[in-house]
Simulated scan of single mutants.
Amino acid sequence: MSQMPPQVATIGFTKSTAQHFFERLKKAGIKTLIDVRLNNTSQLSGFAKAADLSYFLKEIGEIGYVHKPILAPTDDILKAFKRDKGDWRVYERKFIALMESRGIETKFQPDMLDGACLLCSEATPHHCHRRLVVEYLNQKWGNSLLVKHL
């Protein structure tokens, strides 16, 4: 009997109602939300501010919450892309180099991400660092993760 590969999801909260956000997590069977934002306390985060989010996750879906800024870009990388309207390919290269320098693949194991969902703000994974994180880890771990973008 073969064991299922670790399943990890990603989600963003912008352009989503709280109801739609939490329903997607519950439907996907998420056990832990891993917040990969650098700043998780901004007023612009609405229902996704760290203290509120932790409470809502527990109450609505018995989902755990952890903040892992080691999986977030630095403020410099973020500002160059967001505020200064930088090139996505430059952002991607800089963030991948940052993950490499941090050795994130040695700080986590595939089974640690099983049933987890990586959270950031972007509505879709296309131009978002949460996708880069799971792709980077999957590449380093021999494509051992089953990834779903919620």
Rank of each mutant, 00 (worst) to 15 (best):
Q43R: 15
Q43N: 11
Q43I: 12
L44E: 14
L44M: 14
L44Y: 15
S45P: 05
S45I: 03
S45E: 00
S45Y: 02
S45N: 07
G46K: 08
G46D: 07
F47I: 12
F47G: 10
A48Y: 12
K49V: 01
K49R: 00
A50N: 01
A50L: 03
A51K: 15
A51L: 14
A51H: 14
D52N: 09
D52A: 07
L53Q: 03
S54H: 03
S54E: 08
Y55Q: 04
Y55V: 01
F56I: 04
F56N: 01
F56H: 05
L57E: 05
K58T: 02
E59D: 02
E59R: 01
I60R: 00
I60V: 00
G61S: 01
E62T: 00
E62A: 03
E62H: 05
I63K: 01
I63D: 05
I63G: 03
G64E: 07
Y65H: 01
V66S: 14
H67L: 01
K68Q: 06
K68P: 02
K68L: 06
K68E: 01
K68R: 04
K68M: 06
P69R: 09
P69G: 10
I70W: 03
L71E: 09
A72G: 13
A72H: 12
A72L: 12
A72D: 12
P73E: 08
P73D: 08
D76M: 10
I77L: 12
L78E: 03
L78Q: 08
L78F: 03
K79F: 09
K79V: 09
A80C: 13
A80M: 14
K82A: 11
K82N: 13
R83S: 13
R83E: 14
D84W: 14
D84H: 15
K85M: 13
K85L: 14
K85H: 15
K85T: 13
K85R: 15
G86L: 14
G86S: 12
D87A: 14
W88R: 07
R89E: 15
R89I: 14
R89D: 15
V90C: 01
E92L: 12
E92D: 11
R93M: 10
R93P: 08
R93W: 10
F95T: 09
F95N: 06
F95I: 06
F95Y: 09
I96S: 08
L98C: 07
L98H: 05
M99R: 00
E100R: 10
E100C: 07
E100I: 06
E100Q: 09
E100L: 08
S101N: 02
S101A: 05
G103F: 05
G103M: 05
G103S: 04
I104T: 00
I104F: 02
E105Q: 02
T106N: 07
T106H: 07
K107M: 04
F108S: 03
F108N: 00
Q109F: 05
D111W: 08
D111K: 07
D111I: 10
D111T: 08
M112Q: 12
L113M: 12
D114I: 08
D114M: 09
D114E: 10
G115E: 02
A116F: 01
A116K: 04
A116L: 03
A116R: 00
C117I: 09
L118H: 00
L118V: 07
L119F: 06
L119Q: 01
L119T: 07
C120S: 14
C120T: 15
S121Q: 10
S121H: 09
